[in-house]
């Protein structure tokens, strides 16, 4: 529990019975939407990010998405930048990918935002590690919601999240004694 912040007791919210729908700042999209709009915002985010982390690699940009790859050494700092400067405040999904031909494992954090005007955007922050020594720092201190998804990525890909409070099996049986099942060299029984 070194890096994880303990959950704070939440004060009860005032009771208001009536449902409210706050006005949304986003305008609805124009009726004849272009088929392949230029991903302007994604490119802006990528530019801001690469200005701060010049070694980062822009994997792809789409209208509502951007994916950037950094090294495991700077992922902690990059995550703080994404949360505090770019305002992506919560984890949506964490995924691993086994690039066995390149002898690499990839971890991708998909983060969303609750800030008005940014809700439609998903930021993907990725890092790659060698398959023989897959150690990356945990990002629980940045996004509290990363705890279970990182645990799942650990058991399914064998990626070690340094500083994670518990990497016990979440979905796999306690006595699972084989390769991490989502690695490409693990073959499902009967295949």
């Amino acid at each position: 529990m070194s890096k994880a912040q303990p959950p704070q007791p939440s004060p009860p919210q005032p009771l208001t019975a009536a449902p409210t729908t706050p006005p949304r700042a986003q305008a609805p999209p124009a009726a004849p939407a272009p088929t392949n709009p230029e991903p302007v915002r994604a490119k802006e985010f990528a530019a801001k990010f690469t200005a701060k982390f010049p070694s980062a690699k822009v994997d792809w940009t789409k209208e509502h998405r951007v994916k950037l790859t950094v090294t495991p050494q700077e992922v902690g700092e990059a995550a703080l930048f994404v949360r505090d400067s770019l305002k992506f405040d919560h984890i949506s999904t964490v995924s691993g990918v086994d690039w066995i031909a390149r002898n690499e494992l990839e971890v991708v954090y998909f983060v969303g935002s609750s800030v008005t005007g940014l809700e439609d955007f998903v930021f993907a922050l990725a890092e790659r590690v060698p398959r023989d020594d897959p150690v990356v720092p945990t990002l629980i201190a940045v996004w509290r919601g990363a705890e279970y998804p990182e645990r799942e990525t650990h058991e399914m890909f064998g990626i070690n999240f340094k500083g994670h409070p518990s990497q016990a099996h979440l979905f796999l049986p306690e006595d699972w004694n084989d390769l991490p099942p989502l690695r490409k060299d693990y073959v499902s029984p009967g295949r």
């Binding site: 939440s10 004060p11 405040d89 919560h90």
Partner: peptide, 18 residues
């Protein structure tokens, strides 16, 4: 159910509620 298991807005954001 009134006031049972209150999740504040801040915690909902931090924990990634959906």
């Amino acid at each position: 159910s009134d006031g049972v298991g209150v999740l504040s807005r801040e915690d909902a954001v931090a924990l990634g509620a959906t």
